[in-house]
């Protein structure tokens, strides 16, 4: 049985998904203010690293990285609602790409597993 990351299409899937996902996030007034718009390329690189992790791919993120990386956003008010929105857009992105529901659920649960680290709890 192949892994989730292989089923989704690996790095190619990440590269295809990142624009769709990031466009949904930037276009959503509920979360767009968390993105400083001066460094789109840097942010896209970060979204790719996030998608790689959520797709079950290789990643080197530790709880500490996620905590450090989101600290300034938590101070700006990042909370559970926003994490829910991220997971919603993640699901919407995968649906557009024709990914089966079972795999979308698995991706959502990986993303959800880092919720406490992201929110510095």
């Amino acid at each position: 049985m192949s892994s989730l990351y292989e089923r989704l299409g690996g790095a190619n899937a990440v590269n295809t998904a990142v624009d769709i996902f990031y466009r949904k996030m930037l276009g959503d007034d509920r979360v767009s203010h968390f993105f400083d718009n001066t460094d789109m390329d840097g942010q896209i690189a970060k979204q790719k690293a996030f998608l790689t992790m959520a797709f079950g791919g290789p990643n080197n993120y530790t709880g500490k990285d996620l905590r450090e990386g989101h600290k300034h956003l938590v101070e700006k008010g990042l909370n559970d609602t926003h994490v829910d929105i991220v997971i919603e857009h993640l699901g919407g992105t995968l649906k557009e790409l024709g990914v089966p529901d079972a795999d979308i659920t698995e991706v959502a649960s990986i993303a959800n597993s880092v919720r406490d680290d992201v929110l510095n709890r």
Binding site: A11, A45, K48, A49, T52, N59, N60
Partner: peptide, 10 residues
């Protein structure tokens, strides 16, 4: 470096 998986381009 950051992700070591060929995505972040650091």
């Amino acid at each position: 470096y950051s992700c070591k998986s060929g995505t972040c381009q650091s």
